[in-house]
Lab assay of single mutants.
Amino acid sequence: DCSRLFDNDLPDGWEERRTASGRIQYLNHITRTTQWERPTRPASEYSSP
């Protein structure tokens, strides 16, 4: 389970979450994917897998 964190500095379409182990990951709501690196572009600029 991940708990949500609120971060207004993220590009549109992204959400920051913390894993059960405390690591931060980023959820792309457009492609429904996650990544460990902080995003720098809006989620819509990433392609679906």
Score class of each variant (00 low, 15 high):
1 D>E: 02
1 D>Y: 02
1 D>W: 00
1 D>I: 08
2 C>N: 15
2 C>A: 06
2 C>T: 13
2 C>E: 05
2 C>F: 15
2 C>H: 05
3 S>F: 09
3 S>E: 14
3 S>N: 13
3 S>M: 15
4 R>Y: 15
4 R>A: 13
4 R>M: 10
4 R>E: 15
4 R>I: 15
4 R>V: 13
5 L>S: 12
5 L>C: 05
5 L>D: 06
5 L>Q: 11
6 F>C: 14
6 F>R: 14
6 F>V: 10
7 D>P: 04
7 D>A: 11
7 D>E: 10
7 D>T: 13
8 N>E: 06
9 D>A: 13
9 D>P: 09
9 D>C: 06
9 D>Y: 10
9 D>Q: 07
10 L>S: 02
10 L>D: 00
10 L>E: 01
10 L>I: 04
11 P>D: 02
11 P>Q: 07
11 P>N: 01
11 P>I: 00
12 D>A: 13
14 W>L: 01
14 W>R: 01
14 W>P: 08
15 E>P: 01
15 E>R: 04
15 E>D: 07
15 E>F: 05
15 E>Y: 03
15 E>G: 04
15 E>L: 07
15 E>S: 08
15 E>H: 07
16 E>G: 12
16 E>F: 05
16 E>Y: 01
17 R>W: 04
17 R>V: 12
17 R>Q: 14
17 R>I: 06
17 R>P: 00
18 R>Y: 05
19 T>V: 07
19 T>N: 08
19 T>C: 06
20 A>C: 10
20 A>H: 06
21 S>D: 14
21 S>M: 09
21 S>E: 15
21 S>Y: 06
22 G>Q: 01
22 G>R: 02
22 G>Y: 00
23 R>C: 08
23 R>H: 04
23 R>D: 12
23 R>V: 08
24 I>Q: 07
24 I>H: 00
24 I>P: 07
25 Q>P: 00
25 Q>R: 03
26 Y>R: 00
26 Y>L: 00
26 Y>V: 02
26 Y>C: 01
26 Y>K: 00
26 Y>A: 01
26 Y>G: 03
27 L>D: 03
27 L>Y: 12
27 L>V: 12
28 N>L: 00
28 N>D: 05
28 N>E: 02
28 N>S: 04
28 N>M: 00
29 H>G: 12
29 H>A: 14
29 H>M: 12
29 H>L: 13
29 H>P: 10
30 I>P: 03
30 I>E: 07
30 I>K: 05
30 I>T: 08
30 I>G: 11
30 I>D: 06
30 I>N: 09
31 T>F: 03
31 T>S: 12
31 T>P: 01
31 T>K: 07
31 T>E: 14
32 R>C: 13
32 R>G: 15
32 R>L: 14
32 R>Q: 15
33 T>D: 11
33 T>V: 12
33 T>G: 14
34 T>R: 05
35 Q>D: 04
35 Q>N: 00
36 W>Q: 07
36 W>P: 05
36 W>V: 10
37 E>K: 08
37 E>W: 05
37 E>R: 02
37 E>S: 04
37 E>T: 02
38 R>P: 03
38 R>V: 05
38 R>I: 04
38 R>L: 03
38 R>D: 00
38 R>C: 07
39 P>G: 02
39 P>D: 02
39 P>W: 01
39 P>F: 00
39 P>A: 00
39 P>R: 00
39 P>C: 00
39 P>V: 02
40 T>M: 14
40 T>K: 13
40 T>E: 14
40 T>L: 12
40 T>V: 13
41 R>G: 15
42 P>I: 07
42 P>D: 02
42 P>T: 09
43 A>H: 07
43 A>M: 05
43 A>E: 10
44 S>E: 12
44 S>L: 11
44 S>K: 14
45 E>Y: 07
45 E>L: 06
45 E>T: 07
45 E>H: 10
45 E>V: 05
46 Y>N: 08
46 Y>E: 13
46 Y>V: 11
46 Y>W: 09
47 S>F: 10
47 S>K: 12
48 S>V: 14
49 P>R: 13
49 P>V: 15
